[in-house]
């Protein structure tokens, strides 16, 4: 398969994740969307690395995965804390920054 095929697949996953981030009411649901988007990025990185014959992209994929896991752990911790303080996991209710 060509590089374009892999990039198109990654783009599709990315856009689905984006859609989830924009639409989900639940904060955990939003986090899931973010995970999807990051995955799409990883696919991109690996595909470019392999088609370009350069190992750097693969190394950075390792880094990205680690960072993503950290992000997921922290994000979920924030969700729990948020729930304790505000008694809600619905993103719509979190509007302290409203103008």
């Amino acid at each position: 398969m060509s590089l374009q095929a892999y990039l198109t697949l990654a783009a599709a996953v990315f856009c689905i994740g984006l859609f989830g981030v924009m639409t989900r009411r639940n904060t955990i649901g939003i986090l899931l969307g973010i995970e999807l988007m990051l995955n799409a990025v990883n696919i991109n990185l690996v595909a470019f690395a392999r088609f370009g014959g350069d190992v750097t992209g693969l190394i950075f994929t390792v880094f990205t995965i680690c960072i993503t896991v950290s992000e997921a752990a922290l994000g979920l911790a924030i969700v729990i804390l948020l729930f304790r303080v505000r008694r809600t996991v619905t993103a719509d209710h979190l509007d302290l920054l409203r103008g």
Binding site: L7, C15, G52
Partner: peptide, 20 residues
Amino acid sequence: VAFTVLALIVSTVVRQPLAS
């Protein structure tokens, strides 16, 4: 929005001379 972004990305990617 998501679909349009996808369409635009794909149309851009497809037009690029990338390794097959």
